[in-house]
Write a protein that binds this DNA or RNA. Structure first.
Lengths: 107, 107
DNA sequence: TTGTTATATCGTAATATTGCAATATAATAA
DNA sequence: TTATTATATTGCAATATTACGATATAACAA
């Protein structure tokens, strides 16, 4: 074995797990951090900022894009990546709901 | 290669990535979900609820415990797991900060 | 057209994760 | 003591992730 038994869990549970997996690597956290510091939605100098090779960065960007954390728009030769506020809000809301439910707990 | 280059990133970035990794599997999402539905902090009938063998569940619980999402207290033979509100609040706060910074962005 | 620049994909090696049977541990019961 | 019950750990096979060199693609410039 070794394959995760995704089929045994609900669609919602798999969706949340996929969202978190997209943020489960420091390089992808660093990409989100960087996108927050730049005013204009800068594209591939992310490669220069990160201590990783260009194909590796491209792969991490792809995962963030697949999870809808970032969007990329083509601008000539370059691609302009930026954060997607909806996904950020979705996770924030998820944890807000959890914290509400926790208020009625013992422990 | 294949090992994540954690040393090249900041402590904070690694810490956040570790938190999210703990939630990056549907089984661990399901455990959190379940802990939210039970009034008393039930222990090992998590094994009966999940479609996984007892050692696998124990392993997932360990990862949630290492990331401080849950705590376990011994009650006789059983162990009583429950959620840790502090870690929940920490992530929620993290996304709140991100959303604040996003307000000043273009895209 | 050719050249250049920016990004993506392929192929592959190193490492990490997932899942479970078997076994160990630890607390209680008889 | 032995038995039982609850949870953890070990060992290993299957699979997934990470990283990067080499290469492909796509847009623009000359």
């Amino acid at each position: 074995m070794g394959a995760s038994k995704s089929d045994s869990f609900s669609v919602e549970q798999n969706e949340m797990a996929t969202l978190f997996k997209a943020l489960s690597h420091p390089a992808r956290i660093a990409i989100v951090d960087y996108l927050l510091t730049v005013d204009t939605c800068i594209c591939g100098d992310i490669v220069e900022v990160l201590p990783l090779a260009q194909p590796t960065v491209s792969q991490h960007l792809k995962e963030l894009k697949n999870a809808n954390f970032i969007q990329g728009t083509i601008e000539g030769t370059a691609i302009c990546y930026c954060l997607n506020p909806d996904t950020i809000a979705q996770i924030e809301h998820h944890f807000g709901a959890i914290r509400q439910k926790l208020k009625n707990k013992c422990c």
